[in-house]
Simulated assay, not measured.
Amino acid sequence: MSSSKVFSQSYAEARYRFCDAVKARGFHLETRVLEGHTGLLGEALATDATIVGDPLAPELIIVTSGVHGIEGYSGSACQLSILEDDELLRKAERAGKALLLIHAVSPFSFSYGRRANENNVDINRNFIDFSSVRPANSGYAELHPLMLPEAWPPGDQNRDAIRAYQLERGMQAFRDALSTGQQVHPEGLFYSGLEPEWSNRVLREIVGMNSASRQRAIWLDIHTGLGPYGFGEKILVDMRSNDADADGWADAKRIWGHDVVSLSAGESVSSNASGAACALLQSEFPSIDSMSLVIEFGTLSMTETLEALRFDHWVYRNRNLPNYDTLAREARKTMLKAFYPASDLWRGMILGQMRAVMEQTLAA
């Protein structure tokens, strides 16, 4: 399949293609509109979902795109490739498994080319217990003024200070302090928010409606931006809460291979962040035999990706500047390079690896 058939150039195009493919298959389309906001091109913003196969099947495979909005380009392409794959859909039907495809979990940030949503909240840090007092992320508090300096581009003094922190504390400590999640700086990076966001509530509703009666569920959440170029790291977010022993870990490796890594064990390119969306299967439905897997497709180096994130957040923080529109356009271009490479080679790697993951999951 040519990548141009499934990879889009805007959220509006991706949504149109997804909805059109669902309707062409005769599947039911569920739509949740984000009221009070319009997209970059003036379009409506929505999370769309469909069930493929027997809606009462005892086993469910969930595939989500756009939890981090701009990463939805690749997730949307993978979902569209599933909808257009006759052989894969026949295998799902024969296996007696239903597929739940949830498109553009964070439609605002998909449309505007950001990872953070309409309130600058990182949705993948937002699935936490807001009723309990959470410890402050002192590491991020120290890094915040370095991540978002007064002027952009940052000077040598800023970069030297960041390198000094990395050398003194170590790269793992730097990554954890930066990206675990924080609730003190609402204009900062990896902000968890102070309450469940719209995308959080909608995702809970869609997953709840379609998962409660299942015996078994596997969640595949598609992300980009970390790791070697084009490589899809398979990250076990949480072992099944009703079987969190060695058997659960062994099952994950049996399904997806011995290159599966554990988020909680610190084996992944990603930090063990609090509030991951796909972990709600274990937290909300403990009676279901479930596993959640993030597929993280690498793009640029961590330094380049972080630089794009810093610039994007710096522009957001300075959105009252008279040249904001120009800065925002430049930030979107930088973010696209970091999270959505314009390369047929990269895009082909994404589709091939996702197809393999789907085959493995259906055979489980």
Rank of each mutant, 00 (worst) to 15 (best):
L280I: 15
L34T: 07
S111W: 03
Y11C: 06
S132G: 01
L80W: 01
P196M: 06
E43R: 10
L281W: 08
K91Q: 14
D20L: 08
R254D: 12
G26T: 14
D251G: 09
D238L: 12
V184Y: 10
A136M: 11
T224I: 07
F339W: 04
A331Y: 00
S2H: 09
V133K: 09
G139D: 04
R214N: 12
P135R: 01
P341F: 04
K333A: 11
P145F: 09
S2G: 05
W314E: 00
F339R: 04
G113M: 00
L226M: 14
R355A: 15
L281F: 11
L263P: 05
P286L: 07
A212P: 02
P228V: 07
S211V: 15
S264Q: 14
G72M: 02
V294L: 13
V63Y: 08
A244M: 08
R214P: 10
L40S: 10
I288P: 01
A57R: 05
G225N: 04
G181Y: 10
H37S: 03
L351I: 15
M147W: 06
L146H: 03
G170D: 07
T47Q: 13
R329S: 10
G208E: 12
E13H: 06
A244V: 03
V269Q: 07
Y191N: 05
H258T: 14
Y191E: 06
L80C: 10
K333C: 04
A331D: 00
G42H: 09
N210L: 11
I102C: 04
M291T: 13
A212C: 07
S138A: 09
G225K: 06
D325W: 02
Q282S: 14
E43I: 07
